[in-house]
Design a protein around this nucleic acid. Structure first.
Lengths: 341, 341
DNA sequence: CTGATGAGCCGAACCGGTTAAGTAACGATG
DNA sequence: CATCGTTACTTAACCGGTTCGGCTCATCAG
């Protein structure tokens, strides 16, 4: 039998303090309207009774839910494969729990369902704001969120954000670093195993790749995938079948890089002697393969945390500026070497 | 400017239908008390106006939040590394979204914080029930949840659940399958690289490992770790340093198995010719290594879904029985072979 | 001494639903 | 025809906070 038959409310606190519930509310919320003496008494009694505000009641009257929303429009299976998301969510959580905000997490199949979720949340007043990930080129979510008046922070490049608040990492600089690294080792032919071309991040990286390879006078080719290990392996086979064969391959995530590594080695090619491999998203995977993988490292946990802080700031009325979180750092490991011959 | 200045409430629907708000509530909730004609009219008007129930209001009066809670007491970094959780969460989500329940996800540092979270949720009436993962031996959460009267489903073996509703996979049978596989190949010395010994799952597997190796007359040794790639690698080094050297190693998750694989190969030992490797949790990782890894495969997405359905059933009053979800299936891949000599 | 000012608190409305209790209309029953 | 039981609603209390208008009383200038 639960021992919480009698729930603690501000009415109870008011009774014990001999004041009205309204006064208690003022006291607990640190607002003017009560004397310091009364406030102290109220706070003490509230602490003694272990009072906790009822979220629903507060939300109903104050019209804020103290909840942020995050929709992931990917299959559950993709989420299993991508370590990226769990880290991001963990970072979001770490900030929210500090200020007793909650996270509403929804996993849906596609963008249309994601839009429905936003509409529902807006109607229900379910969340105070949302974090939008996997930004697309010409993203339809931007217009919907604007129309709904839903505060949002987009995770992605300002060129994709159409003026909405956003937090981004400098993928262009990162791509430059990777290609300059490869070029400086003497490679002349490189391949890029990219994610889905409709994803904004991929589009940005594609452009950066094109520009950098042109500038560095590298022969180059891009293979698009759905980010999965399976397609990463297939793209690697396609890349290795080209003439001239690329001597360096840059991947869009580390799962595909690891899958690609196995494909390369399976064709009796050596890494890094025959092929240099560079990964993106430096999860522990990159450190446990043989050879270990050169990777563009960024802190997904910190990224999630920073995005969340940015959204919370925006909710307090601060006009949000596009905010560069960081530039992925190139970590050079065993999979980098000069090309053969 | 948002176009939702005038929010749709049941009062508005009542006005348009010429009935009282109470009648509208009965109609919308499919309860007796209104005629079919009125119900139809109400439903039609509600649909036209795109009415969505206000969660806070409903929660406040009905005293249910239509939210389930899930606390993960692991570091954000661990969560990044373990594909397991994201799949589980995805499975939970897939069931919840179908019945418009929400998930409150909280990531905390340790069990004490987890207990605090439960207390807070109970006081706030934040969740209708919780899913408890990473069950421990003599788990302190069981007593707390009982005392709070918080409906819960434990993810783990009935022997650890102390009579609480639980959903489990048969780790003992899985361990038997793995060791019989290894023994039938002719191995006589095996090592087990296990997770944290205070975790119930690990304890169950430890016992199953001891019993099975004894029954099959295998020389055996267990190395405990914190599940991380780093300690998985260290444990592998320790195992390989023993005399006689084990010719087969069974890992508690696939991340450690992959890390161990690199260690083995780094000591110029061949997999599977010199050492057979068996992983647990068959994420895509096991299929992209060279060689591919034999693994105890289970569907984490389905597991999360099943656990959630079980909790939802329990909430409707059905007396919950311990429920066996499935037995992990041994998938034999390239990392299995007869021992050398 | 009087009236204005404002700090400190009370009472009540309100948020948007749910639900118990009450009521009017109506058909069935004795 | 009086009585009873249903059906189909209405009314109003309630959940637990927030917030606003108004009341009381001390303070202080005129």
């Amino acid at each position: 039998m639960p021992d919480d038959v009698h729930r603690v409310t501000i009415k109870e606190i008011a009774r014990r303090c001999g004041v009205s519930p309204g006064a208690v509310s003022y006291a607990l919320n640190n607002r003017p309207g009560v004397s310091e003496a009364t406030r102290a008494r109220v706070l003490q009694v509230a602490a003694e009774l272990e009072w906790v505000p009822n979220r629903a009641a507060r939300q109903l009257s104050a019209a804020r839910s103290e909840t942020l929303g995050l929709v992931l429009a990917r299959s559950a299976q993709t989420l299993v494969e991508e370590p990226y998301f769990m880290g991001f969510v963990g970072g979001v959580e770490s900030v929210l729990s500090e200020c007793s905000y909650a996270l509403a997490l929804q996993v849906v199949a596609d963008l249309d369902e994601e839009l429905l979720t936003y509409r529902k949340w807006a109607a229900e007043r379910r969340v105070d704001g949302v974090i939008v990930v996997d930004l697309r080129v010409g993203d339809p979510r931007i217009a919907v969120l604007r129309k709904l008046g839903m505060p949002a922070v987009l995770v992605g490049d300002p060129t994709l954000a159409d003026g909405m608040p956003c937090v981004w990492t400098d993928a262009t600089a990162a791509m430059n670093a990777a290609l300059e690294h490869v070029a400086s080792l003497g490679h002349r032919t490189v391949a890029r195993v990219a994610g889905r071309p409709d994803f904004g991040d991929v589009w940005i990286r594609d452009r950066a790749f094109d520009l950098a390879t042109h500038r560095l006078q590298l022969a180059a080719r891009i293979h698009h995938t759905d980010y999965s290990a399976h397609e990463g392996a297939a793209a690697t086979r396609a890349a290795l079948a080209e003439h001239p064969r690329p001597t360096a391959i840059v991947y869009d995530n580390d799962l595909m890089a690891v899958a690609g590594l196995a494909v390369i080695q399976g064709q009796n090619l050596r890494v890094p002697e025959d092929v240099t491999v560079v990964a993106w998203d430096d999860s522990p995977l990159c450190s446990i393969t043989r050879p270990t993988l050169t990777a563009l490292s960024h802190n997904t946990v910190g990224y999630g945390a920073e995005v969340t802080r940015h959204l919370l700031n925006a909710l307090t009325g601060a006009p949000p500026q596009p905010h560069l979180y960081s530039t992925p750092l190139l970590i050079i490991r065993e999979s980098s070497a000069t090309p053969p011959g």
